[in-house]
């Protein structure tokens, strides 16, 4: 059905105003990151002179590159771990029928009700006890197993016709090979969704990196930003904003690229 022009205009107006309101904090930050400190102090919105000084300073003041690298490593580790572990678990829940499976599935659901934040104290002690504080594994390990990821993939795997499994059984293919050569390739889209989601949430983690890192060698960029912000005085807002942009831009790009896929995947995993 074609939309009448008046409706179209009002819809676009609504969309534009909403988009502006949603995006305005990011726009301000973006503009400010190119401002000199006078402009910032005066509370200007658009810089009178565009400068990259703030970025240079941010990278000088903190080992931001190292932090970015740390974040990347941790996020990749978590992402890959989640893909492997959730796909294995989801496979068992879909293609293997055995006694106690439903009980184990319930156990997985139960993990969603236990907030990580409520159990940080023992987790901190555990990771400390394993001598994994200030290491990438220490940062990643608690997040590798995920019930959400398992559900998402279970949903996808369930849509694979069971005849594919049966045909492979007749051909003489075992479970692990079927998982590798059929299930994973067929479920590629969902794996990408989970990878995106896993990477995004890992990159944006705050509390755990704050607790489990004490030095710059493994500190993630989020905690770096906190450091930058708490060191800075008012007149150096530009530097802080530059830091914030450095932190936010990789995930923003990732989100923009994968938005459609993420939206589809999340809706499927969350709801069925």
């Amino acid at each position: 059905m074609r939309m009448p022009l008046s409706k179209k205009i009002s819809l676009y107006t609504l969309l534009t105003v909403s988009a502006f309101l949603v995006f305005v904090p990011i726009i301000f930050a973006f503009l400010m990151s190119f401002m000199n400190s006078q402009d910032a102090m005066l509370g200007k919105i658009i810089p009178s002179v565009w400068t990259l000084d703030n970025y240079v300073k941010a990278f000088e003041r903190l080992p931001l590159l190292k932090f970015l690298f740390n974040s990347l490593m941790t996020s990749l580790l978590i992402m890959i771990g989640q893909l492997v572990l959730s796909s294995l678990a989801a496979y068992a829940f879909v293609f293997l029928k055995f006694k106690g499976r439903d009980a184990l599935f319930f156990l997985f659901i139960a993990t969603m009700m236990i907030p990580f934040e409520a159990s940080i104290i023992p987790n901190f002690q555990t990771v400390k006890g394993m001598n994994l504080l200030d290491t990438y594994p220490g940062l990643a390990l608690p997040f590798l197993a995920t019930a959400f990821g398992t559900f998402l993939l279970r949903q996808t795997f369930k849509q694979i016709p069971k005849e594919l499994k049966e045909a492979s059984e007749i051909a003489g293919m075992g479970h692990f090979k079927f998982y590798l050569t059929v299930v994973l390739p067929v479920a590629k889209t969902s794996l990408v969704t989970l990878a995106l989601y896993g990477f995004l949430t890992a990159w944006n983690m705050y509390l755990w990196p704050l607790l489990s890192t004490t030095n710059d060698h493994v500190r993630t960029v989020q905690i770096g930003l906190k450091q930058l912000q708490s060191q800075e005085t008012v007149n150096q807002w530009g530097v802080v904003m530059a830091g914030a942009m450095v932190v936010a831009i990789p995930t923003l790009i990732l989100l923009f690229v994968g938005q459609k896929r993420l939206q589809k995947g999340l809706a499927e995993g969350a709801l069925k």
Binding site: I26, A29, Y206, Q222, T251, L252
Partner: peptide, 17 residues
Amino acid sequence: MIFSSTMGVSVAAASVF
């Protein structure tokens, strides 16, 4: 894209904004 953008902004960055 704009409406979903805040998902790509970490707590730390958003807090700074």
